[in-house]
Design a protein around this nucleic acid. Structure first.
Lengths: 111, 111
DNA sequence: TCCTGATGCATCGGCTGTCTAGGTATACAC
DNA sequence: GTGTATACCTAGACAGCCGATGCATCAGGA
């Protein structure tokens, strides 16, 4: 495998987080692990990307947070989707499908 | 349509340019118009993104440029893919398909 | 006992890519 | 002459991501 086999997020992290939380509230660390496991590590979620994204989304009113206790009895901040977050998720999913479809269609086209 | 219907490139511009040039040499302006027309304007290529990208790719040795005359008899800089550019295109296309597939699979999954 | 690794939060600096906005110049139609 | 399309380029700003680092707790192994 090439040494530059980066797992870039390309601006999709916010949408992926919203989608993850649409399955129910989770704490930040669990969100990252869930995304990675669901993609078979095709996507890596660095903590330096994750926490700013969560903060960003909460600031926009798409998430709400609450301190609680994780499954492993540790202090953790749980996030849940707001109504506005659900709306944003639908819109962004739609935009992603159109965009990625367009890119894939070009990249896989034969001369 | 939402007013914030941005056509973001999400880091795919370099790959799209390489792909465009794999069909044969073109000048910059034509590359942008080709991408836009192929996607039915789902993707917009701003000139402030285009020219820095072309410069970037040439600096990396993935493109070679040469001044010439466009179909409309105007001075234009023509770009062609180098061998390294073709290799990079193959790698980046592969990376894109894996990445976008992973994202799409998450976003379209049902709880 | 000490050390490592996993869990869980957070921030900082720097880089890269994109956009906005401007500029230059030529050709052609009106 | 004036506008429109073609064709190039750059500067400035900003957002998102990454790497590094820091804090704290707990389990398990050497």
């Amino acid at each position: 495998m090439a040494p530059s086999d980066k797992k870039l997020l390309h601006g999709t992290l916010d949408t992926l987080i919203l989608k993850t939380l649409s399955h129910g509230p989770r704490h930040g660390y669990a969100v990252a692990r869930w995304i990675e496991s669901k993609t078979g590590d095709a996507i890596l979620v660095e903590e330096g990307s994750l926490y700013p994204a969560l903060y960003r989304l909460e600031k926009k009113g798409l998430l709400k947070s609450e301190w609680g206790i994780s499954e492993l009895e540790r202090r953790a901040k749980f996030y849940r989707l707001t109504d506005r977050g659900a709306t944003a998720l639908a819109e962004e999913t739609d935009a992603w499908l159109r965009f990625s479809g367009a890119v894939t269609s070009i990249l896989t086209s034969r001369p």
